Simulated scan of single mutants.
Amino acid sequence: MLNLRVSATVLGLIVSSTALSILQTPPPEPCTGNCTFIHDPSVVRRSDGTWLRFSTIGNIAIATAPALTGPWTYQGALLPQGSTIRVRDDQELWAPDVFFANDQFYAYYSVSKSGFQGSDIGVATSKTGDAGTWTDHGSVGVPKSADYNVIDANLFRECDTCDNVWTFGSAWKGVYQTSLTKDYLKWGGEIPRQVLYNSSYPLKPQTFPSITEGGFLFWWAVGGTKYYYNFFSSGACCNAADDLQAPGDEYKIMVCRATSPTGPFTDADGKNCASENGGTLVLGSHGNVYAPGGQGVIVEPGVNRVALYYHYADRSIGYAFDQFLFGFNYLDFSSGWPVVTS
């Protein structure tokens, strides 16, 4: 948790390492243009150098920019008429995950409503990623379960001939993994297995003990060892200004790692991230930044730096859903664990 613990000694007050890391966390990098009303961003870079950002609401909003910092320009909806999937009359499209393979873009999107467990994940494809070019293929077909919610997809494929790993899940019993068919359009039949769960952060008013969601796989080699990092969001997102969670229980970005993309994942203290409430803090609330989450990770070409991108509320602006912003920071993996740096 993000408690700022202080230990008294005969020499005075020594700030704990957790508190010190929070105090030293830099603000988000600059963002210009369309940077507001952003939730659950997914960012990719096209071969022509154009950055594309996809985000929740507006039937998956698409924006483009010449650089990660912007200026971002809204281009339209990924599915202007909505999805062919129908889970309820007032459904919304959430949490896009966009991946390039087989000479086209794949966009996995959630069909749901807040607190609803009968959700589904669909997939659409496009050759360019531009608004107006997407074809909806409907549901991926992963089975429903009382253990998880079928939202927050993430497709991971390490190489052209490697097996894919498809991560999904939110709340209830957390984040699960399975795989898709080789065309990435349908569930491959592998029974989903739990890989991330953390019940440490009590929430209101939900009946489930916590939210563990948005698993995102990313590999990076450190000291000759290839690690697979599973970034996820944990805690409470999007509370009203007069009903905020206790400090440390709000949304935050956590990580666990493994030497295989399918786990088992452990945190920096060696805790299992599926069975022992494991999870190492990457980015929590600090300064004006409140409840960062909905994250993804991407290598920025040219500078070869790893960027962690996410949504967050700015305390100086407000906590309303439409006030959330797009943010990103760079990561340093030299210790073996991702550390936010400027």
Rank of each mutant, 00 (worst) to 15 (best):
P30M: 13
P30N: 15
P30I: 15
T32W: 08
N34T: 14
C35G: 03
T36H: 13
F37E: 14
I38Y: 04
I38M: 09
H39C: 07
H39M: 12
H39S: 11
D40I: 12
S42P: 11
S42N: 09
S42D: 14
V43E: 04
V43C: 09
V43K: 08
V43Q: 07
V44E: 10
V44M: 08
R45E: 14
R46L: 05
S47L: 13
D48I: 06
D48T: 05
T50W: 09
L52K: 08
R53P: 00
F54G: 05
F54S: 00
S55H: 14
T56L: 02
I57G: 10
G58Q: 11
G58D: 14
I60R: 02
I60T: 01
I60H: 02
I60M: 03
I62N: 01
I62L: 01
T64L: 07
T64E: 14
T64A: 13
T64V: 14
A65C: 08
A65N: 03
L68V: 10
T69E: 15
G70V: 11
G70H: 12
W72Y: 13
W72E: 10
T73G: 00
Q75T: 12
A77P: 01
A77R: 04
A77K: 05
A77C: 04
A77S: 15
A77F: 06
L78P: 02
G82V: 12
G82D: 10
T84V: 14
T84A: 11
T84C: 05
T84H: 06
I85W: 10
I85R: 09
R86H: 15
R88C: 13
D89C: 00
D89G: 06
D90P: 00
E92A: 12
L93E: 02
L93W: 01
W94K: 10
W94T: 09
A95D: 06
D97M: 10
V98H: 05
F99I: 06
F100Q: 08
F100L: 08
A101N: 08
Q104D: 05
Q104G: 03
Q104A: 07
F105N: 00
Y106I: 03
A107E: 04
A107Y: 04
Y108M: 05
Y109L: 08
S110L: 03
S112Q: 08
K113V: 15
S114T: 14
S114K: 11
S114E: 13
G115V: 04
F116C: 03
F116R: 02
Q117H: 13
Q117S: 15
S119C: 13
D120L: 04
D120K: 01
D120I: 00
D120S: 09
I121C: 08
V123R: 00
V123S: 04
S126E: 01
S126T: 04
K127E: 12
G129R: 01
G129P: 00
G129V: 02
D130A: 15
A131D: 02
A131M: 09
T133R: 00
T133V: 09
W134V: 06
W134C: 05
W134K: 05
W134G: 01
T135E: 08
D136C: 11
D136V: 12
H137F: 06
V140T: 02
V140Y: 01
V140F: 01
G141S: 09
G141M: 07
